[in-house]
Design a protein around this nucleic acid. Structure first.
Length: 564
RNA sequence: UGGGGAUUGGUCCAGUGGUAGGACGGCAGACUCUGACUCUGCAAGCCCUGGUUCGAACCCAGGAUCCCCAGCCA
């Protein structure tokens, strides 16, 4: 159980933790935690953190707590708590009995503050926000001490108790740590520990009007929960000396903090602020819009939890600032869905085909494989009849070189069906558009093999016109047109106008009538799709494209292959 | 011009004194009732400059570049 090398591959954090287990540093225990603030929805970057924290706990037989860092009632809401828990569970992680909230520790935190005051390590400051900012100095100049810095302990105690009793207005007084205004680390220049906030907290209601700052809550919360390894992102690296100072001053359990780089993904943004704007300004339909990198968006798009976990394993954990290519995420979901998704035939841009020599009114049931990667998944029947729909791209009046599909005089195989040869086509006089293709079939080729052994280069998918279901299909592409939208002045100027294409008259095979919301399919030769969990209805199916299949023909043709 | 962190093919991650490796992406083939999957091959890298050493991606010195920090946000 103590071998993170088995399948996960290791990283510098797992190396440290494994070493700590060997040396019995924490009595062999491993306790980690995933500490989101309930002020937004979880995204793929949080998945990385969860896979690290819950993953390490799982691999070492330790435990991982889910703790909400809810120290700012003006920004946090219960709605977020609910969605975060749902997303954590969906990814497959289990916090067991360890669901915690920083707000559970408000009383303990208050006592810690009293303790620091009594030790002469904290003081109540009367300066206002602007004065404190001015007194902090700059990156190159030291700060100045507050005139209230040397208040007697008794006076500080009295004032802090009165802060708790709501005797002061917001901004009038704060509790500050008494550290070093000349420190080159700005976090050590007497940071604010407590502020007055007359806001209703989503869990503690109006019980408090003073709230601890994150820096005063996080380390102690970890300490209270006896966390052994406090894993966080790099921006907290220079807060570590402050946490050390507080924990040492309080003389309580001191977790080991280790920082790692947060995830960045190409063609998207992962800052809560920007994601919020996308939602609020209506650039997307909501937090769960399938174009969003949120876990709810990815879920609705059709990403499986397994594919996201695999992705997190592959990107590794290190300290350098990076941007992982979204192509890797796509690869992971294709790899997973290839193994699991049931195959079906769906025509996104229907083109009518009439098999002229097939008896009118006759219907045959052909057998289609559910998943060639997994024979145990069985087969299903697809109806074949005289009139079919094929993908309009699969027919060319004037085929380019290396085009193996249908064209005048060419023979192709209908997947699981017959060989057909194009005998002619009808055009709409006014538009010049091909509206019907006429073919003849070879009855000897039923099932897709020719008794005379002749081969065809192309196999195309199809649906029976009379049996097919009409469906809406939503094609998704990157939300942004540039690899690093974060580096653009206004990311809204690089939004991809083609990130969503809605196709309304697609035809899918009849076996999909019962397709359940969230169900994954591979539409053969097209891509991976899933039934939209919000808008799909029996009789009015809506499919979301999770990812395209790799398309080497599109490359030969020089196109992108991703477009509608 | 303060403090902290980082720098290995296009991208991400390994390698921590002894011939630089994997994955994704790219290119070229093979296979194929999905131009999918799978398989094979190819191209492509140690930020720079010195030093130590028989030998440096790794150790030392200097330099460069990038990221984070001046919320009563987390």
């Amino acid at each position: 159980m103590i071998s993170a090398n088995d399948s996960k591959g290791s990283d510098f954090i797992r190396d440290i933790i494994l070493d700590d287990i060997r040396t019995n540093k924490w009595g062999g225990r491993v306790v980690t935690r995933f500490p989101p603030e309930p002020n937004g929805h979880l995204h793929i970057g949080h998945a990385k953190s969860m896979c690290l924290n819950f993953g390490v706990a799982e691999e070492t037989g330790g435990e991982c707590h889910l703790r909400f860092d809810d120290t700012n009632p003006t920004k946090e809401e219960e709605e977020y708590v609910t969605s975060i828990k749902e997303d954590v569970r969906w990814l497959g992680w289990d916090w067991g009995a360890h669901l915690h909230y920083a707000s559970d520790y408000f009383e303990a935190l208050y006592e810690f503050a009293i303790d620091l005051i009594q030790k002469g390590k904290a003081y109540v400051d009367d300066l206002n926000q602007e004065q404190i900012r001015e007194g902090r100095g700059t990156l190159t100049e030291p700060g100045k001490e507050s005139p209230h810095r040397n208040r007697p302990v008794g006076e500080n105690l009295d004032l802090f108790r009165r802060m708790r009793a709501c005797e002061f207005e917001e901004g009038a007084r704060v509790l500050r740590a008494k550290i070093d205004m000349g420190s080159p680390n700005l976090n050590m220049r007497d940071p604010v520990l407590y502020r007055v906030l007359k806001a209703t907290h989503h869990r503690t209601g109006d019980a408090w009007c003073i709230y601890p700052m994150y820096d005063f809550a996080h380390g102690q919360s970890d300490s209270i929960e006896e966390v052994t390894h406090s894993l966080c992102t790099m921006e907290f690296e220079d807060h570590r000396p402050l946490y050390d100072w507080i924990l040492n001053g309080l003389e309580i359990h001191h977790p080991q903090q280790i920082e790692f780089a947060r995830l960045n993904l190409t063609y998207t943004v992962l800052s809560k602020r920007k994601l919020l704007h996308l939602v609020e300004d209506g650039y997307v339909s909501g937090w769960d819009d399938p174009r969003m990198p949120t876990l709810s968006g990815l879920r609705r798009r059709g990403y499986s939890p397994e594919s996201i976990k695999t992705f997190c394993d592959r990107i590794g954990v290190a300290k350098r600032q990076t941007a992982v290519e979204v192509a890797l995420l796509e690869h992971c979901v294709r790899e997973d869905l290839n193994q699991r998704a049931r195959r079906a035939m769906a025509v996104l841009h229907p083109l009518k085909v009439v098999i002229d020599n097939f008896p009118e009114g006759q219907v045959e049931e052909l057998e289609a494989v559910n998943n060639p990667e997994d024979p145990a998944m069985g087969t299903h029947k697809v109806p074949f009849s005289r009139e079919l729909y094929i993908e309009s791209d699969d027919f060319r009046e004037d085929p380019p070189g290396k085009f193996f599909r249908l064209a005048p005089g060419r023979e192709v195989r209908l997947r699981y069906g017959y060989f057909i040869t194009c005998a002619g086509f009808d055009k709409d006089e006014s538009t010049g558009e091909v509206v019907t293709v006429h073919c003849t079939y070879d009855p000897e080729t039923k099932g897709g093999q020719a008794p005379d052994g002749r081969k065809v280069r192309g196999t195309i998918h199809w649906v029976s016109a009379a049996h097919a279901l009409e469906a809406e299909v939503r094609l998704y592409d990157n939300l942004f047109t540039v690899e690093r939208p974060d580096e653009v002045e206004d990311y809204r100027t690089v939004l991809n106008p083609e990130s969503l294409t809605v196709l309304t008259s697609c035809r899918v095979e009849s076996s999909l009538v019962d397709a359940a919301p969230g169900q994954h399919y591979q539409f053969e030769r097209v891509g991976y799709f899933c039934v939209d969990s919000s808008d799909s209805r029996p009789g009015a199916l809506v499919f979301n494209r999770t990812a395209t299949l790799r398309d080497s023909w599109a490359k030969i043709e020089g196109g992108g292959g991703k477009q509608a």
